[in-house]
Every structure is written in C-alpha cells, then in structure tokens.
C-alpha cells in the first residue's frame, strides 16, 4: 500500500479532532459520549496504521484492547446517562447540575 503513514495520521488526527469537537460542543450527553468514541476510534486507526508502518502487531493489539475498553465505557457510560436522565429528565449537560 503506497500511502505514507503521514496521511493516515492526518486522517486519524482529523477524526480525533472531530471527536473532540463533538464532545465539546454538542449539548447532549449522548453526543459527548459519541464524540469520545470517535476519538477512541481515531486512536485505534492510528495504532493500526503505525503497526503496519513498523511491521509489528503491537499496534493491532492495542487497537483490540481499545475496542474492549470502548465496550466497557459504553456500558458504564450509558448506564450512568440513564440514571441521570431518570433524575433530571434531560441530557443537556448544562441542566445536569
């Protein structure tokens, strides 16, 4: 594959930034979580790309663990969000005080 790592990193960086953007600006807890998921995905992408660059499997292994952790994160996070929603009847972080 004749793509330099730089381009892949640029893609990952872009995704990462979109993730941050989403987490930071969208006034919705679910969107915040989604943004962070995007960030994780971007990191995983970078890892896999770097893994190819260095011809190792370490990066892929990290990506695997990232997926597992993302799963755990979603389960705990969504459970929390439900709790919060039950109490405040809203997902706007500004109103969850």
């Amino acid at each position: 594959m004749n793509v330099p790592l730089t381009h892949l990193l640029t893609l990952a960086g872009g995704l990462f930034f979109i993730g941050i953007w989403c987490a930071v600006t969208r006034r919705n807890l679910i969107m915040v979580m989604l943004g962070i998921e995007i960030m994780l995905n971007a990191a995983a992408l970078a890892f896999v790309g770097a893994s190819l660059r260095w011809q190792q499997m370490e990066g892929q292994a990290v990506a695997l663990f990232v997926l597992a952790i993302a799963a755990a994160e979603v389960s705990v996070g969504l459970a929390l969000i439900i709790c919060i929603y039950r109490r405040y009847r809203t997902l706007d972080p500004a109103k969850v005080q």
């Binding site: 941050i20 987490a23 930071v24 600006t25 006034r27 915040v32 972080p93 500004a94 969850v96 005080q97």
Partner: peptide, 11 residues
C-alpha cells in the same frame, strides 16, 4: 461550570 466547559478547557 458545566462539564463541557471543562472538556473545552482541557482542549
């Protein structure tokens, strides 16, 4: 402040 502002600050 709200949680998102904190995330914003970090960024």
């Amino acid at each position: 402040g709200m949680i998102q502002y904190k995330l914003l600050t970090i960024s």
